[in-house]
Design a protein around this nucleic acid. Structure first.
Lengths: 205, 205
DNA sequence: GCGTAATTGTCTAATTTTCAGACAATTTAA
DNA sequence: TTAAATTGTCTGAAAATTAGACAATTACGC
């Protein structure tokens, strides 16, 4: 039940990744630094890539579990929380960005962005009569925007704090969101039988 | 070989001690918060007091192992390092101060102060011809001063940062130390056969 | 005060985790 | 093209963690 060794291995790996690129880190390096047997590594992880996946998975879960309630109503605040890990490990993330197969990191970024945006959107739509479909469209829009920002940030060497980018986005969409939602809500009330947007995969119950 | 669970228990205990006094913390509280079996606690520690001792012991060791070289030449800097743990866990230390038997905490404080001062004194006396006995006297003097400061700090509720006190001490003794050492060094050179101070436990080789 | 619940410290025995050591197969580097 | 390093896998032993119970003590509500 106790997984402290596993956590220690993950933390050690991130430390190393903050020091040097992925291809200069061996499993032996990790376990030596961590003071743990090499077999213990393979007991928990199939290989380094499984380790990376696991770190991101846990990072996402821990984010959603401990999501601060006060951050749910501000997209900027939500993004600050969502990007905490990335901002605290810029070098490590940058090393991964350079070493990992295309799509690997993007998937993680999208995943964590989507979940953050989802919370924000649903909080904004609280009490409104908006269809799930409309909410999904809006969520996808903002998620893509966030993903774009994050990827640009990485490709530019992660030198500038992404919060700056996020500030721009936030300023741009904050006022818009409510009005979009209000309109959608009105539409839904007016013509409750027909969808207000492209019925590509409409969902009526 | 792996002691990550033990460390996790210790950290959990300190967290709890930063939240509430010692007599409101049960072993069950610790293991529950930590997500570990109660037997695991007793596997590592005889009881809470053994846990406390262990934390202090490890804290001292880890201090001495990772002692920053740049801090060895300044008493103030050394004290900053030595009191790091206490300053970062004011509440916990204060709770211990109120709950522990007299002498328990004092012993720890003296221990860590003595080792810090010892490094400082020996660094100052580097290359000088000073007897070990004289160095010990000086070390005891400064150690006692530090202990006094720390105890006063605790008895006053640890509200003021002890670095302020330490600043005072440092200002007071910094200039003095060198001259004392120089004089002692001269004495030792002049009358190399007789000790320069009380020969209580003289050590000549 | 009494009774009840909670906590402690100890014990067993099962299970899980970590270990040391070796191995062939690849990769790295000189 | 060797030699060294690394990987991934396997064994079996050792260590750590668990569940569960127990009597003894302590804390708390009434």
């Amino acid at each position: 039940m106790a997984k402290f060794t596993k956590i220690a291995i993950e933390k050690t790996f991130i430390d190393l990744l903050n020091e040097r690129p992925l291809d200069q880190i061996t499993v032996t390096d990790i376990v030596n630094r961590c003071g743990v047997n090499r077999n213990t590594f393979y007991y928990y992880f199939e290989d380094v890539y499984a380790l990376i996946d696991e770190i991101f998975r846990e990072q996402t879960n821990e984010l959603l579990d401990n999501y601060p309630v006060e951050s749910v109503n501000s997209l900027k605040s939500g993004f600050e929380v969502a990007t905490k890990f990335m901002r605290e490990n810029k070098t490590a993330i940058f090393h991964l960005y350079n070493s990992l197969n295309r799509g690997r990191l993007e998937e993680y970024v999208y995943d964590i962005a989507e979940k953050t945006v989802d919370r924000f959107i649903h909080a904004q739509a609280e009490g409104m009569n908006v269809s799930e479909h409309d909410l999904n469209v809006l969520t996808r829009l903002y998620t893509s925007a966030f993903e774009g920002v994050a990827l640009r940030w990485m490709s530019e060497g992660m030198s500038v704090d992404p919060i700056e980018y996020i500030n721009d986005i936030d300023r741009l969409i904050h006022g818009v969101t409510k009005s979009i939602l209000k309109n959608a809500s009105k539409d839904a009330a007016d013509t409750s039988s027909s969808d207000s947007s492209r019925p590509q995969n409409s969902k009526k119950n």
